[in-house]
């Protein structure tokens, strides 16, 4: 498997190699890796990559996948235009 070719996060264009490089450098947790690579912070808010990264951390450190902590889910649940929010009140009436 060519690690450069395996995309883990499509929003931020993060490959498997980006992930394993950081694990090799000694970064251990989801939060640390997220902050360096922006993985999980893109338009889809981690729909695909969270479980993929969880699995990589689990394999690398040999810990059960359910023990790998994942980041906080942030509002909004879906992208909304600023304009729509600012005008929302108007549209309600």
């Amino acid at each position: 498997m060519i690690k450069e070719d395996v995309i883990i996060c499509r929003c931020e264009d993060i490959t498997l190699k980006d992930i394993t490089d950081l694990l090799d450098e000694g970064y251990q947790t989801f939060e640390e890796i997220k902050r360096i690579l922006r993985i999980g912070m893109g338009a889809c808010q981690g729909s695909t990559c969270i479980s993929l990264l969880q699995r990589e951390i689990s394999n690398y450190h040999n810990i059960p996948i359910e023990k790998v902590e994942t980041p906080k889910v942030r509002p909004l649940m879906t992208g909304v235009k600023l304009k729509s929010i600012s005008e929302a009140y108007k549209n309600e009436s």
Partner: peptide, 11 residues
């Protein structure tokens, strides 16, 4: 102009 942009997350 930036009213056109989608909000991704807030914290």
């Amino acid at each position: 102009l930036i009213g056109e942009l989608r909000v991704i997350r807030q914290w």
